[in-house]
């Protein structure tokens, strides 16, 4: 019985992927199957989350759609695989997904020993602190002796301990596994401070606080969490495609091209725009794509600013370090030429 099932399973898998010869490039394989398989978070507001109608929304999701737009000229040719934190790297390594766009922090270990390539940074995050305004705390340096609500098992807890030790301060941790309960503990006043990534703090303050103005996020950011899309080692062309799709989103914003204006601006005399939309040069061909790849990305998905405003701004995020370098942020795309 089990052999039959395994045989059936194997034949199903082969039937599902008839053209995955080992020698084929990722791009050819993706084109042959007709869609980009994208690994996303099972539910993280603003990054990837199904809405009430079951549609995936978020900046990580939009990156997947942008890759589909670059490859196919059709942002809907993408399928999403919701992945848990434990599964994500296996899913990418085993080829279950073509791109992993799941708020994944870029670290040296992951980039090297896990056999992965980070294609850039779509959101610069970092761990921060939120305190009730009535405590009058202005800086994390004033938190000596504070009670801190934190979720266990992640680097969050370690960063917290490191930060307090490095600054010669003590704290009393209140460690609670479930997000729901740790938030209840903080809002009920069981602890003075809640710590997690700043993106999480912003979302919680906007959605859960009875009055968002009663809580302040302290200016100190105690860890670097650059989040970005990931591909696996072994196919540099696919790596380039994902990397330059991300850069195209940034470049479009810098050039002032948005989903609404790019069709009118396509005939602009600006040589950078000419190259971007594929009117001159062969950038698309060099990547193995259509020369209008970047044009399609912006036309169908928008530029980085639009994506940010659609997904993160409503949750109370401000651009901060995720602004373009021309506006004092860290978002910088190498020239597309």
């Amino acid at each position: 019985m089990r052999t039959i099932m395994l045989a059936a399973a194997a034949s199903l898998a082969l039937a599902a992927a008839p053209d995955r010869a080992a020698a084929q490039t990722m791009l050819a394989a993706v084109k042959a199957k007709g869609y980009v398989q994208c690994g996303v978070n099972t539910g993280l507001a603003g990054f990837s989350q199904p809405d009430s109608r079951g549609q995936w929304k978020g900046i990580d999701v939009d990156l997947c759609r942008a890759v589909a737009a670059a490859v196919f000229g059709d942002a809907s040719k993408v399928r999403f695989t919701p992945l848990t934190a434990q599964q994500r790297f296996t899913a990418l390594q085993s080829g279950e997904v073509d791109v992993l766009s799941r708020n994944t922090t870029w670290t040296a270990t992951r980039d090297s020993s896990l056999g992965l390539n980070f294609a850039g940074v779509i959101y610069y995050d970092g761990q921060g602190f939120m305190v009730p305004r009535k405590l009058g705390v202005k800086s994390a340096k004033q938190l000596n002796g504070a009670t801190v609500c934190v979720q266990p098992g992640t680097t969050t807890e370690l960063n917290l301990a490191d930060y307090f030790r490095a600054n010669g301060m003590t704290f009393k941790p209140v460690v609670i596994e479930k997000l729901e309960e740790v938030l209840n503990a903080y809002f009920a006043g069981r602890c003075d401070v809640y710590t997690t990534d700043v993106s999480g703090l912003v979302a919680v303050r906007a959605s859960r606080a009875p009055n968002p103005a009663d809580h302040v996020i302290l200016p100190e950011v105690i860890s670097k969490e650059p989040l970005g899309p990931v591909v696996r080692h072994g196919d540099d062309q696919w790596f380039d495609i994902v990397k330059w799709t991300l850069f195209a989103l940034l470049e479009a914003e810098e050039l002032g091209l948005s989903s609404k204006t790019i069709e009118q601006n396509a005939s602009s005399a600006n040589p950078s725009i000419q190259r971007f939309v594929g009117a001159t040069g062969d950038i698309g061909k060099m990547l193995g794509l259509d020369n209008r790849w970047a044009f399609n990305v912006v036309r169908l998905v928008g530029n980085y600013g639009e994506i940010f405003d659609a997904n993160l701004k409503p949750l109370g995020f401000d651009r901060g370090i995720n602004n373009l370098w021309t506006n004092g942020g860290l978002m910088y795309a190498p020239p597309i030429r």
């Binding site: 399973a9 194997a10 199903l12 898998a13 082969l14 599902a16 992927a17 995955r20 080992a22 394989a29 695989t81 434990q86 599964q87 296996t90 899913a91 390594q93 085993s94 080829g95 279950e96």
Partner: peptide, 19 residues
């Protein structure tokens, strides 16, 4: 089934997650 098995399979052969 979800994390170990896929690593034992040959490259680019995947069995559906649900299966």
């Amino acid at each position: 089934a979800s994390v170990m098995l896929p690593l034992f399979l040959p490259e680019r052969v995947t069995i559906d997650k649900l299966l």
